[in-house]
């Protein structure tokens, strides 16, 4: 699973060995207790921030000022959540984080659809309709997976401005499609390459053309890899910050950018409870995707980290 996603060698990418390979445990020994102690302490480190976020978001400001970070709220209040969603201020606008949420939806939904459609076509063409040069372009694209964004961002700004796409919704969607393309193309290419070739040959003999084979045979078969791709892209685009700041413009500011603005531009007293409620709201969608998708998420994770 781990390397299959990055290796350009075709692989099914779904080989997960479930059985632990370690030595068989004896009874409850000191070592066993040590193992569990280590895991539980680690789990606490990982869960602590989530706990802090949750309890802080339900506390009142006077209670927060007492400085008991980890305590369960004494007076339970939903006020911070309502404020975070609807009335928290960024600069002069006081509409909370909700506009950011809808902007993120407007960016993520078409972004996911467009990027995955193009990547599926790429993978299909690279697997079955190779032509001289197609592999070179793929090689360049793979190189792109490792290029720091900062190297291409400025020319891209100039280009988008020339095309009239800078700070527009189509503009940011195109940017997400571009930077999602290397890893998604690789995913689909490896997937299609792992299918039996007879399938394609039979369809060819029956006289099916390029698009027919794609839509009637390959697309329906690629559902498993498409699910991985959707998980990858939904979390990736939703969590994006850099492209949102640079390319989305004020009108389409995604949730992450707005969250950062709410937290960092507060004038006067900082309302930590409102900030934490807003933070949870911004993390809610990818977290929901994670908890619902479970194992699928793990499958996509090695691939997704390349995009990081």
């Amino acid at each position: 699973m781990s390397g299959a996603a990055i290796s350009t060698k075709p692989a099914a990418g779904a080989k997960v060995v479930v059985e632990p390979a370690g030595p068989k445990p004896r009874k409850l020994t000191i070592t066993r207790i040590g193992v569990y102690a280590f895991l539980v302490i680690s789990a606490i480190y990982f869960l602590l921030p989530l706990w802090v976020m949750l309890v802080t978001s339900f506390k009142t400001m006077p209670e927060i000022r007492e400085g008991y970070l980890f305590n369960w709220p004494r007076e339970f209040t939903f006020e911070p959540w309502i404020k975070a969603w609807a009335t928290a201020c960024t600069g002069r606008d006081c509409n909370g984080i909700s506009p950011g949420f809808w902007n993120s939806v407007k960016i993520t939904v078409p972004g996911v659809i467009v990027s995955i459609t193009i990547a599926a076509i790429n993978g299909y063409t690279l697997s079955y309709w190779k032509f001289r040069g197609s592999e070179i372009f793929f090689g360049i694209l793979m190189f792109g997976a490792f290029v720091p964004y900062q190297v291409v961002i400025y020319p891209l700004i100039i280009f988008m401005r020339e095309m009239g796409l800078f700070a527009t919704l189509p503009g940011i969607i195109i940017v997400h499609t571009i930077f999602g393309m290397p890893i998604l193309t690789l995913l689909f290419r490896n997937f299609f390459a792992s299918l039996p070739e007879e399938l394609f040959k039979a369809a060819r003999i029956d006289g099916a053309g390029y698009w027919q084979i794609f839509f009637r045979i390959m697309l329906p078969m690629s559902v498993p890899i498409a699910i991985v791709a959707v998980i990858l892209q939904v979390t990736g685009i939703w969590n994006d910050f850099l492209f949102g700041t640079v390319f989305a413009g004020r009108e389409n500011m995604p949730m992450t950018v707005q969250l950062n603005n709410i937290v960092t531009t507060t004038t006067g007293t900082r309302e930590y409870n409102v900030n934490m409620a807003a933070t949870i709201l911004a993390a809610a969608v990818p977290l929901a995707v994670y908890f619902i998708s479970g194992k699928w998420f793990v499958r996509g994770i090695a691939a997704g980290a390349v995009k990081g």
């Binding site: 990982f46 976020m53 910050f241 992450t256 998420f297 994770i301």
Partner: peptide, 26 residues
């Protein structure tokens, strides 16, 4: 699940939470 869930969160969220935890006063 516990070890992996932070990765589902954006780095912005990560940064803001830890900034709050590392707040010197509260």
């Amino acid at each position: 699940t516990i070890f992996l869930y932070p990765f589902a969160m954006s780095l912005v969220v990560t940064g803001l939470v830890w900034q709050w935890i590392m707040d010197p006063n509260l």
